[in-house]
Simulated scan of single mutants.
Amino acid sequence: MNKETLTKKYTNGTITIVWKPGVCIHSGICVRGLPQVFNTSLKPWINMQQASTEQLIAQVSQCPSGALSFYHNDEQDDLTIQVDAETKLEAVPNGPLLVYGNVLIKDAYGHETRKNKVTAFCRCGHSGNKPFCDGTHKKIGFKDGIEP
């Protein structure tokens, strides 16, 4: 199994957090928000017993790439989340283009991928997972020239 398709699940009995490392853009929001839960120096790096279910849901919901998601264990293991909201695009300074909402992406070969909630698209041109951002912009020092 390669990094692009790898999926890991962590549960506290009430919810299950799903982590897709191939989607992660390493924004660090999870680590900064709940460092007692998300600790990259430990294995496993997610310790769900260190926060309440409500805190976990709030933190995972802030993930800009969708690499972290969750579902309630009493619901079907279905990660297709429909967002009923206006589509919004946001250029992250020196980072990806974030698209909020339901998106259908069709590649040059006609393959379609559905993304929901937040999708991070590469703007630096160096992602190993194009058209999606994989965090390479940080490694190469990408600067977009957009002044705040």
Results as ranks from 00 to 15, higher is better:
N94W: 08
N12C: 13
Q82H: 13
L79P: 01
Y71C: 09
L68Q: 08
K88N: 07
L68K: 04
K43R: 15
L97W: 05
L56E: 12
I146W: 04
H26C: 07
P35I: 12
L68R: 07
V83C: 04
T113D: 05
V18Y: 04
E75T: 14
D74P: 00
C133D: 08
D77E: 15
N129S: 09
G33P: 02
S41K: 15
T16P: 09
I29G: 00
S52D: 13
G22K: 11
H111M: 05
K3S: 09
R123A: 11
R114A: 09
A120E: 09
T40N: 10
T5L: 06
S65A: 15
H72F: 15
M48I: 13
I105N: 01
V37R: 03
W19I: 05
T136A: 03
N129T: 04
L97R: 02
T113W: 01
K3R: 14
V18I: 15
E112F: 01
T113E: 10
I146E: 11
L42Y: 07
L97P: 00
K20D: 13
H26D: 12
L42H: 13
P148F: 06
V118N: 03
I105P: 01
G13T: 13
Q76F: 07
D134A: 09
S52M: 06
L34V: 05
G33Q: 06
D74I: 03
T53R: 07
T5V: 12
N2A: 09
I25P: 02
H137F: 12
S27I: 00
G22D: 11
K20W: 05
C30H: 10
